[in-house]
């Protein structure tokens, strides 16, 4: 029996008066890749932004219910601490434009004022870039600006930056939607590798991608979690009519 790393209970979220998530109950097993699918505007981004408490940074938002990270209610944790356990990769690569590749990777430490010596830094940088499958491509240009890299490389740099903080969970919001097929394939391969040590929650519009990389798939529709099951089950034998319609491309 796999252990659960993340669990939401009757979780709802609002933008002003607009309820975007309705009573979400979901359990994310450790060392799994869970894909979040659903038509545009159904609340996928909002859901993962609630998991690392970025949702509350938008004015006039609120949430109800709870999300547990292992045994801890995340809404009772300090968000700054929480975000060190739960890393995030965004839809568009967003390396820090003023920093070199090297500085980008250790940005989580330097920005927090942690003092590391050169060896520790070198180690974190090499290790994280290796995990993000980027080391070989950039090891000779570590001191160039991160923004000089290609889009796919930038996205892997952002993954390395998140991994450098040694998180337990990685949230990815359509991480390949701005990338070409080759970069996408590289990142998918990487996700598979990362699963050994991390639990991944990935939002994707691309059904093939969900099918390829994920163990479990959650289907959201109009703010509700319609169906959540093993990816194979969802794609071959969806229980809910809406899921079926979505997968067969009848809407969305």
């Amino acid at each position: 029996m796999e252990s659960t790393i993340l669990k939401s209970e009757n979780f709802s979220a609002w933008f002003g008066e607009h309820q975007v998530l309705k009573n979400i109950n979901i359990e994310i097993p450790r060392n799994n890749i869970v894909a979040v699918m659903g038509p545009s505007g159904c609340g996928k981004t909002t859901f993962i932004r609630c998991v690392n408490r970025m949702h509350e940074l938008t004015n006039d938002t609120r949430v109800e219910g709870s999300i547990f990270y292992t045994k801890n209610d995340i809404y009772k944790m300090n968000p700054i601490i929480l975000r060190r356990f739960i890393g995030m990769v965004f839809q568009r690569p967003n390396p820090f434009p003023t920093m070199s590749i090297y500085q980008n990777v250790i940005a989580g430490y330097t920005l927090n004022g942690a003092s590391l010596n050169k060896n520790e830094k070198d180690e974190i940088v090499e290790d994280s870039l290796n995990k993000a499958a980027l080391w070989n491509e950039v090891k000779d240009v570590l001191h160039r600006k991160g923004t000089f890299l290609s889009g796919g490389q930038q996205q892997r740099l952002c993954i390395a930056r998140a991994l450098a903080m040694k998180p337990e969970i990685l949230l990815l919001d359509e991480p390949t939607s701005a990338l070409d097929p080759i970069s996408t394939a590289k990142i998918e391969e990487l996700l598979f590798e990362l699963k050994k040590n991390y639990s991944l929650l990935i939002v994707t519009h691309n059904m093939q991608q969900a099918g390829r990389v994920s163990d479990r798939t959650a289907f959201f529709y109009l703010g509700e979690l319609i169906e959540y099951n093993d990816t194979k089950e969802i794609f071959t034998n969806p229980r809910n009519e809406k899921t079926q319609n979505y997968i067969t491309g009848r809407f969305g």
Binding site: M54, R83, A162
Partner: peptide, 24 residues
């Protein structure tokens, strides 16, 4: 997205402004 990148690394808001936004 730049601010969010910093916040998502667990960097406090004031440090994000001082070390990420202002330098940019």
């Amino acid at each position: 997205t730049l601010k969010e990148a910093s916040l998502s690394l667990g960097v406090p808001y004031y440090r994000t402004i001082l070390k990420v936004i202002l330098p940019a």
